[in-house]
Amino acid sequence: MTQRIKFYQTGTLTVGNRLLDEDNRTVQGTVDRSNSLTSGHRACQGCGEALGARYVVDAAMRAAGDRLFAVNATGCLEVFSTPYPESSWQVPWLHSLFGNAPAVATGVRAALRAKGRTDIKVLAQGGDGGTADIGFGCLSGMFERNDDVLYVCYDNEAYMNTGVQRSGSTPPAARTSTTPAAGAAPGNVFGQGKNVPRIAMAHGIPYVATASVADLQDLEAKVTKAMNIDGARYIHVHVPCPLGWGSAPCDTIKLARLAIETGLFPLYEAEYGDVTDVTPIRRRMPVEDYLRPQKRFAHLFRPDLDAEVLAQIQKIADDNIEKLKLLD
């Protein structure tokens, strides 16, 4: 049976402030949110993914009139939410494998269509490993067929569940347990990695967006928008991981915001392959401010400042800002 929620979020700018107009409050800030991912799960303190998933699923539930099925890839979100014999999910939820969540979601959608159950929506979720790497074939298939599924990737930039190994989404220079801070070029290699939102756009699907746990109003708005579109939709959510990034649990939101304000994680929306909207950077920050608090980048600062690598990373941010006109 679903649990009643505790209404404890008050007085912050991030979560449905009571001081806002009724219309502008977040789904999360209301007492009638579905609380689909309820308390008691085993996520780490400061987990960006747990926060992101809670907002995504509750907003999706609201948009779907509480008629929603969730499909989950293997990963942190799956493991921390369903330790036997407990489950944090208060929504019909299906987990099959690491690399097949998009295809499983397609199957769920097909079953509903066969049964004429057009009232129920389908959400699929996975981490960056399940999305950019092992599940990529299934994801591309789901996009290409324009299957009526909203797929949400929670990107914490490595395989955190298995002990912080590099994924196709790990940023350059980042230390992971398979890209150690050792040798002549410590950390992850430059010039590698996938930009999944861009690849999603290349499929020409109706809606692609990037979002962040630093802007939960925006995240909810994008989920709500996506839920009201038919066909394949993709939202890529940036979710800091204190364990994998070597950051303080209390800095999750701060780091997510710095990723946006440096230009390293630009927020935008795209429809049918074209960018339709960007979130301008309010206060531009140097990448050093984002990198320095994270132990995965510690080798860029100790024993000496690695100005060359920092300049390379700054250039990535600058290019993002220029290409997407984030300062206009």
Binding site: N100, A103, T106, G107, A114, G137
Partner: peptide, 17 residues
């Protein structure tokens, strides 16, 4: 579908629904 892995995965989703 795009592979046999996806074929049976679609069947898994459909059957669970």
């Amino acid at each position: 579908v795009e592979s046999e892995f996806a074929a049976l995965s679609v069947a898994i989703g459909a059957s669970a629904a």
